[in-house]
């Protein structure tokens, strides 16, 4: 059961970081989307920059347990569009809603409840969606290095540096 304890510990670290850095705050998320307070954008860019370099450095030694998501262009664009509406309405994402639940935000409890219903609705619609929308522009789990044909580290390091640089350069409050 060591693996469960590890899951709980890593999840707790993640949840704690989300809470402490304000990612679970409705105000912070909504104002990020309104481009009035870019703190959360800076945080995400920093996390991706560090993640990119770290993940591909592990991969260099064969130590990265990757899990790349499938590309189905039409479906992914529609899905991202639906997600974005929910993101702006609630001010939470599926992970930060759970963090906000724990810090005493009843609207996050209802968001999670709505989320459970939305996930269930999708589960039962899946057979129809799979044959139609998920079939358009389906390319499987492809990555940029696959496409270019070089080792990921050559893209991950420069791109990671750009992400971190951008994170430091973006103003917190644009004029």
């Amino acid at each position: 059961m060591l693996i469960l304890a590890l899951g709980l510990a890593l999840g707790a670290a993640f949840g704690g970081l989300l809470q402490l850095s304000g990612a679970s705050s409705h105000t912070k998320i909504v104002n990020a989307l309104r481009l009035k307070d870019l703190t959360i954008m800076k945080l995400i860019l920093m996390a991706i920059g560090v993640g990119l370099i770290g993940v591909y450095a592990l991969d260099l030694f064969g130590l990265a347990n990757m899990k790349v998501k499938e590309l189905y262009i039409l479906g992914i664009v529609i899905a991202g569009g639906i997600f974005g509406v929910g993101f702006a309405l609630t001010g939470y994402c599926p992970g930060t809603a759970l963090a906000a639940c724990a810090e005493g935000k009843p609207d996050a409890w209802v968001t999670v409840l709505g989320g459970l219903c939305g996930a269930l609705a999708f589960a039962f619609m899946f057979p129809e969606v799979e044959e139609s929308l998920l079939a358009v522009g389906r390319y499987g789990p492809v990555t940029i290095p696959d496409l270019v044909g070089i080792h990921g580290i050559w893209i991950a390091v420069p791109l990671g540096v750009v992400c971190i640089w951008l994170a430091t350069r973006l103003p917190e409050q644009p004029a």
């Binding site: 479906g75 992914i76 529609i78 899905a79 991202g80 569009g81 639906i82 997600f83 974005g84 509406v85 929910g86 993101f87 702006a88 309405l89 609630t90 939470y92 994402c93 599926p94 809603a97 209802v110 968001t111 999670v112 409840l113 709505g114 989320g115 459970l116 219903c117 939305g118 996930a119 609705a121 999708f122 589960a123 969606v129």
Partner: peptide, 12 residues
């Protein structure tokens, strides 16, 4: 919003 959030997430 929560419904849309998870519907979209599972879809994508």
């Amino acid at each position: 919003g929560g419904f849309l959030l998870l519907f979209g997430a599972r879809f994508g």
